[in-house]
């Protein structure tokens, strides 16, 4: 099996590759349970986090993952950088490349940015979110969190709820989870549903999506959606689509509740549910670090000719 060089989305990935990566993540989690949470595996590797869009948790999670593996990390954030002086994305990345880097973790508001970067750069590119296109490590950590308790996803019903149309998290999950055998449903108000979402069944009927679901994945509702007219009113969203304890009862008993964060409490999700027995939100955060350690290992080790 040829080692994969980039993680841009899951196009071309085989189930066995995903499973092997998630198995490595499980072993990485053992490292995170140690008193000294660090291994020398990526000593000598340099990794850049390049965020053309603000993010705290994803960036922190990647940087921590890289440091746990003993890689050197340089962090490039858009504020205060040359980008604000008109330097292009490409020039910015090529300047970083001149510092001899092994991997670039790239977040950008532009869909397809990571794919383009993979063509410009010699090192590995990890997509940390490009526009509304893809956010593969989020989907991996969601799959990891689900597998942790469901042990396998074959035939499991996963409901993604909220602003499906604008969500890279929904798109990446709809790509990844069916690869592992899951049956993915995506529900939201008509104005927030895309025409098609490959890998998922779309519905504006929330009850249909939630019915007997093994897990419910709630997306963050972005307030900009009111301004661009795709959502008429917050009050209406809350009354029709907010995930409440009552609506969770439509799902299977003990169904898992996931949220990629940051959360708008009492908007997409009734506030008390976040800490309730269904919630795996904290588990997702820990899973994120282990999954990103595994991604770095899989992309970087074994590339020398």
């Amino acid at each position: 099996m040829a080692a994969l060089k980039h993680l841009l989305d899951f196009e071309g990935w085989r189930r066995s590759e995903v499973e092997s990566l998630l198995e490595t993540a499980r072993l990485m989690e053992e490292v995170l349970e140690r008193p000294m949470k660090k291994v020398p595996a990526l000593k000598g590797f340099t990794i850049a986090t390049v965020f053309f869009e603000p993010s705290t948790r994803t960036k922190t999670s990647f940087e921590l993952a890289a440091k746990r593996m003993s890689a050197d990390v340089v962090s490039f954030a858009v504020s205060g950088s040359s980008l604000s002086k008109g330097e292009s994305y490409k020039d910015t990345l090529l300047t970083l490349q001149a510092m001899v880097l092994d991997a670039y973790v790239i977040r950008s508001p532009v869909a397809g940015m990571a794919h383009q970067a993979a063509g410009w750069l010699r090192g590995s590119v990890i997509n940390a979110g490009d526009g509304r296109r893809a956010h593969p490590t989020q989907a991996l950590l969601d799959a990891y969190t689900l597998l942790d308790e469901l042990s396998q996803l074959e035939g499991k019903k996963i409901a993604i709820v909220g602003d499906i149309a604008h969500s890279r998290v929904a798109r990446s999950n709809a790509e990844l989870l069916p690869l592992l055998g899951a049956d993915v449903w995506a529900a939201g108000p008509v104005g927030l549903l895309p025409e098609v979402l490959k890998g998922a069944r779309l519905t504006s009927n929330l009850a249909e999506a939630l019915s007997d679901a093994d897990a419910v994945m709630v997306l963050r509702l972005q307030k900009e959606r009111m301004q661009d007219g795709s959502l008429p009113s917050i009050r209406e969203y809350i009354s029709e689509y907010q995930i409440t304890a009552e609506r969770m009862n439509l799902a299977r008993p003990g169904a898992l509740l996931l949220h990629p964060g940051p959360m708008n409490r009492d908007l997409e999700l009734a506030g008390t549910l976040a800490e309730g027995s269904h919630s795996r939100v904290e588990r997702q955060v820990r899973a994120g670090e282990a999954v990103r350690m595994a991604v770095l290992y899989h992309l970087l080790v074994g590339r020398a000719a």
Binding site: T24, P40, L42
Partner: peptide, 20 residues
């Protein structure tokens, strides 16, 4: 595996196994 001294030089990726 994560303590090998040749991880930056090898062409084949070793599989990480369990430490317990």
């Amino acid at each position: 595996t994560l303590y090998r001294d040749d991880l930056s030089e090898i062409a084949v990726q070793p599989k990480v196994r369990e430490t317990r």
